[in-house]
Design a protein around this nucleic acid. Sequence first.
DNA 1: CGACTTGTTGACGCCTTTCAACGTTGGTGG
DNA 2: CCACCAACGTTGAAAGGCGTCAACAAGTCG
Lengths: 246, 246
Amino acid sequence: MLVDTGLCDRAAHVCHHRRSENGCVDCKVRLISVCSVLALPELEQLEALSQHLSLDKGQALFGQGETASSVFNVIEGALRLTRLLPDGRRQVMGFALPGDFLGLALQERYSVSAEALGPVKTCRFARHDFAAMVEAKPHLLRSLHERAGYELSLAQDQMLLLGRRTAEEKVAAFLLSLRDRFARAGHSSITVELPMGRQDMADYLGLTMETVSRMLTRLDRAHAILLVPGGARLLDPAKLERLAAS
Amino acid sequence: MLVDTGLCDRAAHVCHHRRSENGCVDCKVRLISVCSVLALPELEQLEALSQHLSLDKGQALFGQGETASSVFNVIEGALRLTRLLPDGRRQVMGFALPGDFLGLALQERYSVSAEALGPVKTCRFARHDFAAMVEAKPHLLRSLHERAGYELSLAQDQMLLLGRRTAEEKVAAFLLSLRDRFARAGHSSITVELPMGRQDMADYLGLTMETVSRMLTRLDRAHAILLVPGGARLLDPAKLERLAAS
DNA sequence: CGACTTGTTGACGCCTTTCAACGTTGGTGG
DNA sequence: CCACCAACGTTGAAAGGCGTCAACAAGTCG
């Protein structure tokens, strides 16, 4: 698609050190990220503030309670967003996928911890710089606010799930919601990738690892899904919807 | 403070029909609502768009999925915000208290239903009008966005509670969080008012009414609280914090 | 190949739900 | 004034869903 893709591949290191491929214009997630509301000149302005940051599996991007010095756009890979109880019990608040923006509330401190589930590429901005840009561009703030509203709605879905659904319903609903999220990002497929482990799913759904495993095999045996390494094939989405009670 | 307070009191009905007391300037919740970021001339502008709306106990302000034609500021009383599963299971997403803004995401449709827990007074704006004002005043949008970030953080607290706390912890944490919310609104007291019924608490905490009742009496018998009609006196907040595991 | 991490499966126990009875409060009308 | 009723809350007994503990399987990396 682009002219210097070849060049970029050869000089991959330098390129990644600067910006995505040849800059924001060519960014894989531009059209599904907050950047999509920016015009070209604004995009260049943003690019000047950006900086690429890669993480390996398990690395933390930031921790709950830390001063929020940066905000991030996820370009590639997935992260889990978690909160901890003092005694170590963990709740996964969500999973960040390509196109997601981390720190959109622009608050002083991170309200969750973010850890890479696998290799991750992000676009980093100093919060101060980004906030200044937001201040100068109300439509960017508007876009951020829209996203915040969407996040709030997702959080409400999750509260309903955590409070009022059974284990089987939780797992079924989780698979469907993941499918929908991938579809929104332009990745429609009958096979849902599960970049997170069973424990992460459990901590997301308010269950134990064992129960998640049991429910997945139950759905498998009911021919609603087919478990494959690193994912699940949704054989019977209609049945899944019924089981999810949504 | 204002000249025609006397007049207004005598003509209370008309006044309430128009705006709070003598208008936004005298509004009880002005300093704790989104309006607090508005300068006086802006406040008058807002007042021109406002309209008072009162509800009786049980009345619905709006329903989930309905077109969001209005947004609201809660002036007096409390509402519950709920979502329903198709089979009738209910999750209370939160309780709106004086100073809270309903519809701050400014989305097309309401994501929850709102019902009055008792007599309620609200300040109503046509969403279109309010959105236009927000568009013209970035600092108002900024304020809305800050509130959205706070709401998101509360939602995360609740997800942690729903997913990872025991029944006793849930109830203890609930009492403490209610106390803190009243304190934020300037209503510090050792006795926490409980404007909602046991079923509403249960649907908020992901429990049954019976379990909530049992945990409350258990806390009472442990001398952590004292149950009183319509509320609870927090006898031993420290013990409560310990029991809440927060 | 062996150690380690991750996931699956089974047996058992407990916390919360379910079902049911009873108590309490407040409003209504005789 | 009090009987009556409905809504709300409390308490008990029993059942069940999910968690806990433990063994085992499978995939991964040195």
